[in-house]
């Protein structure tokens, strides 16, 4: 297999502004199939913006993004094609409050993958078991704890059988005692070989799972390194400062 075959995401000189604020200043990197990338950096550094650009929740205004061989442009068909292959887990879960857990999980496969109801429900139950809450299938999201809701959100993404999973600070809105149950699910997913990009401050998780660490600051990628190197001997001063701040306590 050549290098180009393995590459599933390619960002080339991507920039993005919100009004006068430049959130991304020419970000470039490649991600290979099966790679697990953890992105960290201070708030406002552009980490969320970057991964939101990958499934076009934000529109980049310079450079190019290619996902799974499809370049993201204004073409809606392309955007939908990319979104079907890219799962996203949000900080605030964003479950559909008016639908049961099961309906949350079957909506995507039925509407955008064209699965029939029985098939979609079968897949949904399978993934609910994987995230260990099959007994909650007929409840509404508001009846679940935060940790359970986030696991449902992960299952909802997985039901689309994505090739890539994006996590945007998946544990930041959780009570401390619920963080582990969500991280455990994510670790399992990583062990199964899923390609993942995770924006998180959970450095323990990063050390266990990541094969690449990306540190961002002020809309730029400052440092890319394997975790062993990243945590023990960061090259850039900004990385050192950031790590000393979050690891000191």
């Amino acid at each position: 297999m050549t290098d180009t075959d393995k590459r599933v995401i390619r960002l080339d000189n991507v920039s993005k502004s919100f009004g006068n604020f430049q959130a991304l200043k020419g970000v470039s990197f490649d991600i290979n199939h099966g790679q697990k990338v953890v992105v960290c950096g201070p708030s406002g550094s552009g980490k969320s913006t970057m991964i939101r650009c990958i499934n076009r929740l934000e529109e980049h205004d310079g450079g190019s993004i290619t996902v799974n061989g499809v370049e993201l442009t204004d073409d809606m068909a392309n955007i939908l094609a990319v979104r079907r292959e890219v799962g996203m887990v949000f900080q605030q879960f964003n479950l559909f409050p008016h639908l049961t857990v099961l309906d949350n999980l079957t909506l995507g496969p039925m509407r955008s993958r064209g699965a029939d109801k029985q098939q979609a429900q079968g897949t949904a139950m399978e993934y609910l078991e994987r995230v260990r809450i099959p007994d909650q299938a007929n409840k509404y999201p508001s009846q679940l704890s935060g940790g359970q809701q986030q696991r449902v959100a992960i299952a909802r993404s997985l039901c689309m059988k994505p090739k890539i999973m994006l996590f945007d600070e998946p544990t930041s809105a959780l009570d401390p005692e619920m963080i582990k149950e969500v991280l455990d699910v994510m670790i399992e997913l990583a062990e199964e070989g899923m390609t993942m990009i995770v924006v998180t401050h959970e450095m323990g998780f990063a050390k266990t799972v990541a094969d690449t660490m990306i540190f961002m600051d002020h809309g730029e990628i400052v440092e890319v390194a394997p975790p062993s190197e990243f945590f023990s001997s960061p090259r850039s001063e900004r990385t050192q400062l950031f790590l000393s701040q979050i690891l000191s306590h």
């Binding site: 499934n55 996203m88 949000f90 479950l95 993958r113």
Partner: peptide, 22 residues
């Protein structure tokens, strides 16, 4: 909430389906 739209987008729903189901 905007997050509802985004969640719909992220599972590949069209704009119309987003309106209709979410």
């Amino acid at each position: 909430e905007r997050g509802q739209w985004e969640a719909g987008d992220s599972i590949g729903l069209t704009r119309w389906d987003n309106y209709r189901y979410i």
